[in-house]
Design a protein around this nucleic acid. Sequence first.
DNA 1: CCAAAAGTGTTCGCAATACACCCATGT
DNA 2: ACATGGGTGTATTGCGAACACTTTTGG
Lengths: 244, 244
Amino acid sequence: MSKDRPSPDPRPPEPRPEGYDPGVFAPFAVTVDVVLLTVVERQLKVLLIQRGHPPYAGAWALPGGFVQPDEDLADAAARELLEETGIGQDRSRLLQLGAYGQPDRDPRMRVVTVAYGAVVARLSEVPRGGSDAAHAELVPVADVQSDRLPLAFDHRRIVGDAVARLRAELDTSDVAVGFCPPEFTIRELREVYEAILQTELDSGNFQRKVTQRKGYLTPTERRVTPGERGGRPATLWRAGDAGD
Amino acid sequence: MSKDRPSPDPRPPEPRPEGYDPGVFAPFAVTVDVVLLTVVERQLKVLLIQRGHPPYAGAWALPGGFVQPDEDLADAAARELLEETGIGQDRSRLLQLGAYGQPDRDPRMRVVTVAYGAVVARLSEVPRGGSDAAHAELVPVADVQSDRLPLAFDHRRIVGDAVARLRAELDTSDVAVGFCPPEFTIRELREVYEAILQTELDSGNFQRKVTQRKGYLTPTERRVTPGERGGRPATLWRAGDAGD
DNA sequence: CCAAAAGTGTTCGCAATACACCCATGT
DNA sequence: ACATGGGTGTATTGCGAACACTTTTGG
């Protein structure tokens, strides 16, 4: 990658693996953070943990932590999510959002974090299998974006970027079905869209748009029994072939 | 700001809970790589340098290098690009593409790289003001993707991702005008699209589509004098307000 | 019966496509 | 005059938005 160049590094050179020039390689910490989103009662929520130690002790933050020396980034994200919240997520379902590396983003040392996005079906409560996360909770994304609920580090920005990315990919990818349980009604899927886009969608047009999209949904034989106030029973659908 | 640098012990520290434990994190090297694209004679090309030292000595690679301790990631990308190729690029014109951190992507040590994309107007030759880059050259992207020209590390994949991203953003962003000089004809812009999408576009429809798009282009009073074989002189256009 | 929710049909307008045609220049 | 490339007009088609309407349930 890089070759000999003047050594502008004010720090004493670290002992280093052979082959790299001293004075050029400064050690960084690399972490991963996970933006886990879910829709509960028509509201988009993000999973946060309450920090137990400084800096930002007591503040809310994204689950995440250090990448281990021989660990892939996505694996680290999955592991941290499991350790801190008890939620197991396949690494293939984690979408990389980007790297955040402003020099002062951590007050103590240079940390570059790689953010990952994850999506789960309506999760009402956090499993609490986490090793030692002080506290994990689902909070409305709106509270984060309005800054009514301040986050540690640059995590508010990361959440904002994640939501923007989610909105952009709603129509072109299969993310939305990730917010639904294995079998779901079109209404349920529509409410996911509405929570994310913050708009109302025409139910009839949505129905067509989503059922006609190839490989997106597959119908089951089962129907749902209507609520107390009646109504035609809705078909249950599964994620389509393309989403597997 | 705590300054205790951990010794770069290659062995992993104990798997530990969330939270910072300065002195126990595993040191990573963080680098940036730049995928600089340009269109020359209807061909999409990427700027590569020839490596002078192992690993991959003599192989082609993306320009890039280590991030310095107090340097922002985008700044590092701009600096490395300038140092290795003599091309100055504003950091705001560098688009982050993502982080690549597979444990074995560098044979000697753990390196996480953050890739940035850049776009310049038809660049026929590399400035050669680079400090020490052995050799820098523009090569057809097709040669990289077909693996006819193998690249060091995982750089082929990074280039592939960059091109995919470029294609996806062609219609929704202003990237394409970045491939054109300050004043350009619609034909020139169309050839950029054609080189990137690998298709032929109807010139008439392209004209309308691109001129009607609000804030995308602004006409000048100037025309271009036709070539030797005649033809109606084309209007010169500038990037629109939205692209500033 | 009516209310409510699922799902379909119908219409309209816009935007993309195909392609014919006119415009302004060089030789 | 003719070739060449710039630019506009026009017909067609497909898709999304708006919304009326039918279907199937509970009360």
